[in-house]
């Protein structure tokens, strides 16, 4: 006779074990630290680029009146910039935001600056949602999850200060918070890849008939290099189009396989470089590549830079 209760108990127990191992087993925060540098620099670039245009967009005679923006983009977008439109206040907030982002990037007081970085970054995002390009949401996601984990535990001013104060201090300790943050980034990144595949495959004819890359090359104001001459080799354009779609699906599904992972990460470098050349969306391509780096383990980072991995935790 089948022991249904025992089967359910065993299955539940295995599921809980796997769940706990996935989300809560301790891991080295080094991958988070690497991501902190890349994401921090991207956030500085995105926010910093408003610097020359603060008044143009947010000033009292700016192009984004608050009432119109709220009507277009929804009521829950709270922003500090909603309350200021004079030049002094705008430049002061901008300066503070950049200082916080720089502190976060170099890993100074990271526990606080990581949270502040997300909040201040979202201040711009919420004040100007109709200017939002495809990169801002990806960087927002990464900033949020980096604020959850100990992203300043390595490769940071905090770590340097800690070692200077007490040379015997151990290297960054593996922790479950690091695993939690990394897993959140990994799962969210896989979802984004899947949705990008879905966006191209669901009712978007040009990605299925192989013409999408052909159209992308034809946009003169975007492509970094003129690739229109490729129209003579339609097979190349068709292959490139299909390769992008196939890669996005493969990344979403196969990145969880340890054997496929290095190949997919290498392919993502090639794919995003090509997409950046085609579309000119360099920050977006960098952000997506950076998100994929969350799948590189601490051991692999240590191996890449020739560093000795810290001894296994007791």
């Amino acid at each position: 006779m089948i022991d249904a209760a025992g089967y359910c108990r065993r299955t539940t127990s295995r599921f809980i074990e796997a769940w706990n191992a996935f989300w809560f087993s301790p891991s080295d925060p080094l991958p988070l630290a690497v991501l902190r540098w890349v994401v921090g620099l991207l956030a500085i670039y995105i926010v910093g680029s408003f610097g020359f245009e603060l008044l143009r967009y947010f000033g009292s005679v700016g192009m984004l009146p608050i009432e119109t923006i709220r009507e277009i983009s929804g009521p829950y977008r709270v922003s500090l910039l909603d309350y200021f439109s004079d030049a002094t206040s705008l430049y002061l907030i901008h300066g503070i935001t950049l200082l916080v982002l720089i502190a976060f990037t170099v890993g100074f007081q990271t526990r606080w600056t990581s949270i502040l970085s997300f909040v201040l970054y979202m201040t711009y995002f919420h004040r100007a949602p109709i200017l939002t390009t495809v990169v801002e949401p990806v960087v927002a996601m990464l900033l949020l999850y980096l604020a959850i984990g100990p992203s300043g535990a390595a490769l940071s001013v905090d770590a340097w200060l800690r070692r200077r104060k007490s040379p015997a201090t151990a290297a960054a300790a593996p922790s479950y918070q690091a695993t939690l943050a990394l897993r959140l980034i990994q799962v969210h990144t896989a979802i984004i890849y899947f949705m990008m595949f879905a966006g191209k495959s669901h009712g978007n004819f040009v990605w299925w008939n192989g013409n999408a890359v052909g159209w992308l090359t034809a946009r003169p104001g975007a492509a970094l290099v003129d690739l229109r001459w490729l129209y003579q080799w339609q097979y190349v354009l068709n292959f490139w189009t299909m390769a992008i779609v196939a890669f996005e699906l493969a990344f979403a599904l196969l990145i969880w396989n340890r054997t496929a992972r290095p190949l997919l990460i290498f392919t993502s470098a090639v794919m995003w470089t090509g997409t950046a050349l085609l579309t000119g969306l360099v920050p977006f391509c960098l952000a997506m590549f950076a998100a994929g780096l969350a799948f590189v383990s601490a051991e692999q980072w240590n191996g890449l830079c020739g560093c000795e991995a810290p001894a296994a935790p007791k």
Binding site: M122, H126, P137, A140, I192, M195, M196, G199, A212
Partner: peptide, 15 residues
């Protein structure tokens, strides 16, 4: 909306 995640992420680049 507060987290900036109220979107489909269906970045199709061109249609």
């Amino acid at each position: 909306q507060l987290l900036g995640m109220d979107l489909s992420y269906m970045v199709d680049l061109t249609g």
